[in-house]
Design a binder for these strands. Structure first.
Length: 459
RNA sequence: UCCCCAGUAGCUCAGUUGGCAGAGCAAUUGGCUGUUAACCAAUGGGUCCGCGGUUCAAGUCCGUGCUGGGGAGCCA
């Protein structure tokens, strides 16, 4: 008999008679003459209740079944006379695949997130993490669906790069030199390294995406990104996934339109396709989640300039630890105030001072600000960071000189401005931060299967 | 990297002025009427994070290290 997944069983209107399920026992309740078991196979949040009567031949073995045990069960799907579930399975045959001994760490009770992080290999077997990772999977799919529908092309940017001057923070070195030998020589000899020069793990696929946007029109990259910053916060990881759309013939407003449409589309998709899993988060993880999602879906995101934001912050009665002045980057407390207290919804901040932004952002006419855009969202802070790119070769040239960038390393990037340059825009969206936004999970370590953070690379 | 907090049974935590190591849940064993975080009873379970110090006496006080959490910076 062919196995039926539990999510499909639970959807049925009429009983198909006998079915075969395979999964893991979440809990067992014994009576004298029979046992109730709840089986979960990961296909859905919900379990199916199985009734094992004592007249089954291997009932003495069935009595020994513990939480975590893997089983294969054939039985008749019947309407449940008990409360709490529509269907239950009257077992005709129960095969125990593998008993989970008493040392199985997951109990039928709530565990702390901190404890579950220490058993990250088992935590997807819990309701909360199973739900989180089903949603993560569905959102990755939704990204591709969104871009397919919009006619974007998917580009895989290289993970190993030779350029290290993007200014996006510390990078992880990639080398196959023998550390013992390097120590003996006293220094790295990059000529002899695998690529014949210094190489690193990517901090962004943007520059690659720009080249492809200027060929295929609208493109996106979606893949892992690495930062060797010693960041110890609930919003940073050394390895995370970033979505980076890049659009030719697109200005800053088009960039924001796109970002807003994307965030709304993905959120709506999660609500439509993961309703049970999403309900778990709004019921048990974050009581304010429902309202937040409603705001994302049904409000227009605010759009203000950096200069206007400074004005709002300076006029605010709220006391800030750090002073705000034109030319300084906004602190966390300022970003949170704007998104959470002042506007109470996602806010695009545009046109930052050129002094605090990278070389590739397009210079505005005032010669003081650049066409940058950040999307600040309640609870997370920065979800999107992007810009309209500087497409004018002479302006880009001048900026790179000002910032002392080694132009010879960027010859190919500058070529794109030499040959048929066009206005174009793009941004990076932190995939994990987006998952935090829509689930209410407050630590980035809990939306990545096996998180990598400073001093921690278990599993 | 900086600031703050925490570390006691498998898990979550209590532990008073420094004076015999505790609870709930889990586990094990038994009971039980269709249960659903089942219920009832019994039993077992400890490097009180490590190291050093103060003291007649340290889970408790002091120093130090490690680990975890919250916040800041960096950013997505």
């Amino acid at each position: 008999m062919k196995r039926t997944k539990i999510n499909n069983l639970l959807k049925l209107e009429n009983t198909p008679g006998d079915v075969l399920i395979k999964g893991w026992v979440r809990t067992k309740r014994d009576s004298k003459e029979f046992s109730f078991m709840e089986i979960n196979d990961g296909s859905a949040l919900k379990n199916i209740q199985v009734i094992a009567n004592s007249n089954l031949d291997n009932y003495s073995d069935i009595e020994k079944i513990t939480t975590g045990t893997s089983v294969s069960i054939m039985g008749k799907l019947v309407e449940s006379p008990g409360k709490g579930q529509k269907w239950e399975l009257q077992a005709k045959n129960i095969d125990i695949i593998n008993i989970a001994p008493e040392s199985y760490p997951l109990q039928k009770k709530r565990h702390s997130d901190e404890f579950l992080r220490t058993i990250a290999h088992l935590r997807p077997r819990t309701n909360k993490y199973g739900a989180a990772f089903r949603i993560r999977s569905e959102m990755a799919f939704a990204i591709h669906k969104f871009y397919k529908e919009k006619g974007f092309r998917y580009l895989t940017a290289p993970l190993i790069t030779g350029s290290d001057a993007e200014g996006a923070g510390e990078m992880f070195r990639v080398t196959n030199l023998d550390p013992k030998r390097v120590k003996k020589q006293g220094e790295m000899n990059f000529d002899q390294d695998f690529f014949g020069q210094e190489s690193n793990l990517t901090v962004s696929g943007q520059l690659s995406a720009e080249m492809f946007a200027l060929a295929l029109g609208d493109v996106y990259t979606f893949g892992p990104t690495f930062r060797a910053e010693n960041s110890n916060t609930s919003r940073h990881a050394a390895e995370f996934w970033m979505l980076e759309p890049e659009m030719a013939f697109c200005d800053l407003n088009g960039n924001m339109d796109h970002g807003e449409e994307l965030v709304k589309y993905l959120t709506q998709h999660a609500m439509d396709e993961c309703s049970d899993d999403m309900a778990l988060f709004s019921n048990f993880v974050d009581k304010s989640l429902k309202k937040r999602i409603d705001t994302i879906l049904n409000s227009e995101f605010e759009r203000i300039s950096y200069t206007e934001a400074i004005d709002i912050l300076q006029k605010s009665k709220k006391k800030f630890e750090f002073k705000v002045d034109f030319g300084t980057d906004l602190q966390s407390e300022h970003e949170r105030y704007l998104a959470e207290d002042y506007f109470k919804k996602p806010v695009f901040l545009t046109n930052y001072p050129k002094t605090i932004k990278p070389f590739y952002m397009r210079m505005n006419d005032d010669d003081k600000t650049v066409a940058a855009v950040d999307l600040l969202v309640p609870g997370i802070g920065e979800l999107i960071g992007g810009s309209q790119r500087e497409e004018r070769l002479s302006v880009l040239d001048k900026r790179m000189d000002e910032m002392n960038l080694p132009k010879k390393d960027y010859w190919w990037y500058l070529d794109s401005r030499k040959f048929g340059s066009v206005p174009h825009s793009g941004f990076g969206l932190g995939f994990e931060r987006f998952l935090m936004l829509i689930t209410g999970i407050s630590n980035i370590r809990d939306v990545i299967p096996f998180p990598r953070t400073p001093g921690s690379i278990d599993f």
